[in-house]
């Protein structure tokens, strides 16, 4: 029996949450498009791709941690710390090379993530609390050692500015010039790589197994420490990658930004169907979750609503989705005499 390697991708059954999100997205797009046809433009699409790239990469890191049964709030801090360290190093050494920037940032991110894993595993502490502590500590350490000076476009490494301006495809129209960002292939590569790791390697399956039931995993002889080390280091590396993309996109290096948005990104991943109880979560769901956030962020103007409506919309959608999901569970539990909560 010969099967296409992609069969699994196309034949997979979508989760309820994915279908639900897809319906929201399509419904919303239809409403926006009816109200304002200008919405359907390459410009809007390219814009969203550019501004959503960094967040998407972070979200994948969040996903893999949630699947492993943990929750990480340090990833924005890691992104800023690794990105800023990399920029500072480039300025100090006079190396103005985008590959060098990525390399340093990813290595730093990876190390910081590994420290998270080490503390979590060694002292058997709740992941939220540990990453809360390390987020503060990492960011504070960076600020103390490297300072918090911002670098505007002129003062930051030129290679980052250039990279952020690089477009794959350029479309010139009467309203201006729109480019498809170079971040896109990076995001796609991250998505494919993560999918491959999670679904096609034993390591990835072990991440699911550990998240599903850590005790059983260890009885089976799965190395819990190695699995967690991978999860947090990978998430850290993605944060490092995002740090450089973030500074390149803004063309401004500000080491005190970004930190504080972590809960919003976690919310996007959760709405995509990842459970805080571990073992569950899909890449498609995560993409859809981010799309919902990005849609509200960049298209409410088309509905004649200012950007101040973003949070209200997203908060409402999030609560309703969670409400539907957990209320069903509640009814099910009542029926099966499961006395879980309240």
């Amino acid at each position: 029996m010969k099967t296409s390697p992609f069969r699994a991708v196309f034949n997979r059954r979508s989760t309820a949450m994915e279908k639900y999100l897809l319906a929201i997205i399509i419904g919303y797009i239809v409403i926006v498009a009816l109200k304002n046809p200008l919405f359907f433009s390459v410009e809007t699409l390219f814009d969203m791709l550019r501004s959503g790239s960094g967040v998407m990469i972070l979200a994948i890191g969040v996903l893999i941690v949630l699947v492993s049964g943990g929750i990480d709030v340090s990833f924005t801090a890691i992104a800023v710390v690794s990105g800023y360290t990399s920029v500072k190093l480039m300025l100090a050494l006079g190396i103005d090379n985008i590959l060098f920037a990525f390399m340093v940032s990813i290595v730093v991110g990876c190390l910081l993530g590994a420290i998270n894993a080490l503390i979590i595993y060694r002292f058997n502490l709740p992941t939220l609390i540990v990453t809360l502590g390390t987020a503060s500590a990492y960011h504070g350490l960076m600020a103390t050692v490297l300072g918090t000076k911002s670098f505007p476009t002129g003062a930051m490494p030129q290679s980052l500015v250039n990279f952020g301006s690089t477009d794959l495809i350029v479309i010139n129209s009467d309203t201006g010039r729109y480019g498809l960002t170079v971040f896109l292939p990076i995001v796609i590569a991250v998505l494919v790589l993560t999918w491959f790791i999670l679904y096609r390697t034993m390591l990835g399956r072990q991440v699911f197994a550990v998240g599903s039931n850590e005790e059983s995993a260890s009885r089976l002889g799965i190395n819990i420490f190695r699995t967690k080390l991978f999860v947090y280091a990978y998430s850290g590396a993605l944060s490092g990658l995002m740090g450089i993309i973030y500074f390149s996109e803004l063309k401004y290096v500000n080491p005190v930004s970004l930190v504080g948005t972590e809960l919003m990104i976690i919310a996007a991943v959760v709405i995509g169907g990842a459970k805080l109880t571990g073992g569950e979560g899909t890449i498609l769901g995560t993409i859809l979750g981010i799309v919902v956030v990005q849609l509200f962020q960049s298209t409410l103007v088309f509905l004649g609503l200012g950007s101040s409506w973003n949070d209200l919309f997203f908060g409402a959608v999030l609560l309703i989705s969670l409400g539907v999901m957990y209320y069903r569970q509640r009814i099910q539990d009542r029926k099966n005499l499961v006395f879980a909560t309240a």
Partner: peptide
């Protein structure tokens, strides 16, 4: 009444 875990319920209301 809806049995949403506190961390998620308050994450949603935080944004709301």
């Amino acid at each position: 009444k809806v049995s949403i875990p506190p961390i998620l319920a308050t994450l949603g209301t935080m944004i709301l």
